[in-house]
Design a binder for these strands. Structure first.
Length: 379
DNA sequence: AATACGGGGAT
DNA sequence: ATCCCAGTATT
């Protein structure tokens, strides 16, 4: 096979031989690979790994499997506990969907994970990729799978032009993936493609000399292997300021639960306001405290400021302390409301920036005791 | 077909 | 700062 020519589907032997041997020799020791016979473990890991890197997932996966070792245990758990285990992992609909799907598997399939694609696709949170992953990795069925790793590997090997996010190019890649499926070694094969994309065929500075596919790879034999895939440029990020108001009364702190839909759905946080156009972080903080506490003048102190990136937003979250003793909080648009002690703050599911504000609050309380300090009102 | 949905790590 | 990541659901 001349390296300048685009390889044909006749070159599949390279995938089934050298690529598979490379994988068996070089695969990383990952928690879910110690439980391969367990389709539930594969399922959980695949949901957690959606858009999330291996290193981030590992501790979450281990805690999860410890608390919810079976489909039944997950189905019987409270959503509250499920979200708590997902707290900080992001894309929280994944956790809610996994919980809902576990109930469906227990109720509709007697607790056994379906082994047919149509049934899997009916479960919330399982799409084309994840169904392929469960069928091939857990059940060794010859079902293809395409994730960003596979996109990168195949678009480089076969010099597939165009934006792989577009439906046309995506279908092309799925077609290649399907034709490459081997008999009897689907599990190794799909993992090998992804492992290659994760460790050698990486976005920047790919390690082509060590790659088992270098003999047939078009991009790998070109001056610049990173010309593929031809990804479209991403969107610019927008900055946004938020303010959380930390309200203490009789040693308890006011927390609100967000609605299930939307950003950070179902998670708990200190009452929050988004800055208006042209409003500075400080102005937003003053307004937020006034609105939530319902007083004209509120003594306050900034506990922490967290910069955080979500999707195409850059969020600056400021935590402001407001000591407050009169009446009830106002203008709280939330699913539920609770007063929690400092220690109980850790017992609810929170987003990553919110958990930072909480830990800074506790730190400040423990080191200076400032939160206990009486600040006189000037209503 | 486009957009919403997190958060951490690498460069 | 910017890109990237074991994608899915909704519009």
């Amino acid at each position: 096979m001349p390296s300048s020519t685009r390889p044909t589907i006749e070159d599949v032997d390279i995938f089934h031989g050298p690529l598979r041997y490379w994988f068996l020799e070089n695969k990383r020791d990952l928690p879910w690979r110690r439980m391969f016979w367990n389709a539930y473990a594969v399922w959980v890991s695949e949901i957690m790994l959606q858009q999330t890197q291996v290193a981030t997932v590992i501790p979450y996966f281990e805690r999860w499997m410890c608390s919810f070792p079976t489909v039944e245990s997950l189905a019987n758990a409270e959503l509250e506990e499920v979200l708590q285990h997902w707290s900080g992992l992001g894309y929280y609909a994944r956790g809610r969907n996994l919980h809902r799907a576990a109930k469906m598997v227990v109720d509709g399939y007697n607790g056994s994970i379906p082994q047919e694609q149509p049934a899997l696709l009916k479960l919330p949170g399982i799409g084309r990729y994840t169904s392929g992953a469960i069928l091939s990795i857990a059940f060794n069925q010859p079902e293809p799978l395409v994730d960003t790793n596979v996109i990168r590997v195949l678009s480089r090997v076969f010099a597939i032009a165009g934006d792989p996010k577009s439906s046309a190019v995506s279908e092309t890649i799925w077609k290649f993936a399907k034709q490459l499926m081997p008999d009897g070694t689907a599990s190794d094969h799909n993992q090998a493609l992804m492992e290659l994309g994760a460790t050698l065929c990486i976005p920047v500075d790919p390690r082509c000399p060590r790659c088992p596919l270098v003999g047939i790879c078009v991009a790998g034999n070109s001056p610049d292997p990173t010309l593929f895939p031809q990804l479209a440029p991403g969107r610019a990020t927008v900055q946004q300021s938020h303010t959380s108001v930390i309200i203490e009364r009789n040693g308890k702190y006011l927390m609100v639960q967000r609605y299930l839909n939307g950003l950070w759905g179902g998670l708990w946080e200190f009452p929050r306001r988004v800055a208006n156009k042209g409003e500075t972080a400080l102005q937003c903080a003053i307004r937020a405290a006034k609105e939530v506490v319902g007083l004209e003048v509120v003594p306050m102190e900034t506990v922490a400021t967290v910069k955080h990136a979500v999707t195409h937003h850059r969020i600056v979250l400021t935590g402001v302390l407001a000591v407050w003793q009169l009446g009830e909080p106002t203008r709280l648009d939330c699913a539920e409301l609770r007063w929690l002690t400092l220690d109980e703050l850790d017992s609810v599911a929170t987003s990553s920036p919110q958990s930072t504000i909480i830990s800074k609050t506790k730190q400040k309380y423990r080191t200076s005791g400032v939160i206990q300090k009486e600040i006189p009102f000037e209503a």
